[in-house]
């Protein structure tokens, strides 16, 4: 049962990550893949404060969100004047550079990571209680994004994505809108990081590398980019299906690579068979 709770936690965390990333890349059209670094900043901040201070875990997680927001604004201010593939690669450089810092500093635990993150909830119901908290927060994040995108601000963001020049001509401040969606999306990634650190009690730099970028991006695109439900479905399918292999009693050295193979094969199949996503609809004249 604890295993199911862990799998549920992973799904909840990835729903927060995928939905917030969808806000940035799907609704805002900002091609960045640095989302895992904000996930990492949230996780490391919460973990370091949890280990080094007596602050309540909620405050530590909130601090993680704050650090992720500040870092995202720093990235946005320096890079949002470049676009498309260039922004994609610049964000990759930002992510790998910060990860290298995390990897090299001693107080972050270096490549070995942090493993002594304090336990905040104990007892047999720990997993399910965490899952409940995570599920509630995932629902809140998805609801907030849905509300924001259904209103006038959301229409302006989509207009910006579709035609920046026309949107600016209507008097909208594109830069402000970009900063707002970037900060909100990355703050949500920081929240997911805090939850991850407190539940799994172990974090290391390799959990936030390029493979993680590909994973979150894939969840968004395969679920249906720019849709409300797409990232949720993408996160569920791509976390749950590879987990099925753990019931086959295989040696642990085989489980990781086999899960990876299942994940990547699923992605490639979906890319070619459902290029508009599991939830998205084929639109005439739109490239997929």
């Amino acid at each position: 049962m604890e295993y199911l709770a862990s799998a549920g936690m992973l799904i909840g965390i990835y729903i927060i990550l995928a939905a917030s990333y969808n806000l940035i890349i799907g609704y805002g059209g900002l091609n960045t893949i640095a989302h895992p670094i904000f996930f990492a900043l949230g996780a490391y901040t919460a973990a370091l404060l949890g280990i080094g201070t007596t602050l309540p875990s909620v405050v530590c997680v909130l601090a993680g969100i704050g650090v992720a927001v500040v870092a995202s604004v720093a990235l946005a201010v320096t890079t949002l004047r470049i676009e498309g593939d260039y922004l994609l690669i610049a964000s990759l450089g930002f992510q790998l550079g910060l990860l290298q810092l995390v990897n090299n500093f001693e107080f972050t635990g270096g490549p070995a990571g942090l493993s002594n993150i304090p336990v905040t909830i104990t007892g047999p119901g720990r997993g399910w209680l965490y899952l409940l908290i995570c599920a509630v927060l995932a629902v809140v994040v998805v609801w907030l994004i849905w509300r924001a995108m259904a209103g006038p601000f959301g229409r302006a963001v989509r207009a910006m994505r579709d035609d920046e020049l026309a949107c600016a001509a209507l008097g909208r401040s594109l830069f402000t809108m970009k900063i707002v969606i970037f900060a909100f999306g990355c703050g949500a990634a920081g929240l997911a990081g805090g939850l991850y650190a407190y539940y799994f009690q172990y974090i290391s730099p390799e959990q936030f590398n390029v493979a993680q970028s590909a994973t979150i991006l894939t969840m968004v695109v395969l679920g249906g980019i720019g849709t409300t439900w797409g990232p949720l479905v993408g996160a569920f399918v791509l976390v749950a299906l590879p987990q099925a292999i753990t019931f086959m009693q295989l040696p642990t050295s085989l489980v990781g690579p086999l899960q990876g193979i299942i994940f990547t094969v699923l992605v490639i199949l979906f890319l070619f068979l459902r290029p508009y996503g599991l939830v998205g609809k084929r639109e005439a004249g739109v490239a997929h």
Binding site: N31, L88, I261, H288
Partner: peptide, 16 residues
């Protein structure tokens, strides 16, 4: 397909 799809495919192929 968009540049993003090419990016995903090539990266995922390497991971596979």
């Amino acid at each position: 397909s968009s540049g993003l799809i090419f990016f995903i495919f090539t990266l995922i192929f390497s991971q596979l």
